[in-house]
Write a protein that binds this DNA or RNA. Structure first.
Length: 263
DNA sequence: AGGTATGTTAATTG
DNA sequence: GCAATTAACATACC
């Protein structure tokens, strides 16, 4: 699931369910997802605090803490390929939960993760975290000028550059394919040969695809039939030209495209 | 049984 | 030394 649209939806979900509630306790199923953070620190910083705001950069979610101290920091969550959030009013507890956060009124927020690829950390400041981890600008707020620098700074295939989190944060395998399909650009095209017009098109399609996907709550079944995400099957009909969707491997990732309409 | 999967990253290659 | 590609990671699912 979690690429930019998924994480943005999770951000909105956390914002709608979990802000300004006093945390009475938390529990961690294992320490394996912790990133430079001890289990004791998670418990200590969460207890008695509340989430003041939910921010996102690329695929990273930051739940900023509000506590009595001056520098409460934030809970950072990365969802890997199978992470999610679930808020429960009653005592239901979802499967695969890794972090459980209980609020004063008995409701809980659960971070779940089936495949244990992801990360949980207590950090001081999201901006510092983003800078220290070398993340590129967020794909949804990047300017066309900066995107031009990102693309023309890459040497390989345009898809690889768009997916490189240190160059541009937020796009993953599924949505990069979708964006390039909408832009009618072959994902294998070298960055160096893309024109300024093509960069402008990619910029517009990043915004279009991501915002529509967020509106669909990142659920493919709620996205238009005309989208590639609905046809990620080798040999499926291209919704635009009726040609065949094909599956290739690019930079080690499974890539779907239509050679009939992507150049 | 084996291949595949939205993630990152260490190791390897260019 | 840098950037790009590959292999490995952990687990569920078909």
């Amino acid at each position: 699931m979690p690429e930019l649209p998924d994480v943005e939806y999770l951000r909105q979900y956390a914002e709608a369910t979990s802000l300004h509630r006093t945390i009475v306790g938390s529990s961690l199923a294992s320490e394996r997802l912790l990133d430079e953070t001890s289990a004791q620190l998670v418990a200590r910083r969460l207890k008695g605090a509340s989430f003041q705001s939910a921010r996102r950069h690329g695929k990273h979610l930051f739940l900023e803490l509000e506590a009595s101290g001056n520098d409460p920091g934030a809970l950072m969550l990365h969802f890997g390929m199978t992470g999610a959030l679930e808020y429960e009013q009653g005592d239901g507890a979802p499967e695969y939960r890794q972090l459980s956060i209980e609020f004063e009124d008995g409701s809980s927020l659960f971070y779940t993760n089936k495949r244990m690829l992801g990360a949980i950390a207590i950090i001081d400041d999201p901006d510092t975290y983003v800078a220290d981890h070398g993340l590129g600008p967020d794909a949804l707020s990047v300017s066309e000028e900066t995107l031009d620098e990102v693309i023309h700074g890459g040497r390989g295939a345009v898809k690889s550059t768009l997916m490189n989190q240190s160059r541009l944060a937020g796009l993953g395998n599924i949505y990069t394919d979708e964006i390039l399909f909408h832009a009618r650009i072959d994902p294998r095209r070298p960055c160096s040969e893309l024109s300024a017009d093509e960069v402008a098109t990619i910029h517009a399609k990043i915004r279009h695809v991501c915002s529509r996907a967020i509106e669909a709550h990142a659920r493919p079944d709620r996205m238009p039939e005309s989208w590639l995400i609905r046809r990620r099957d080798d040999g499926a009909r291209c919704p635009r030209c009726g040609g065949r969707v094909q599956n290739i491997t690019l930079s080690g990732r499974s890539t779907y495209l239509c050679e009939g309409c992507q150049r």
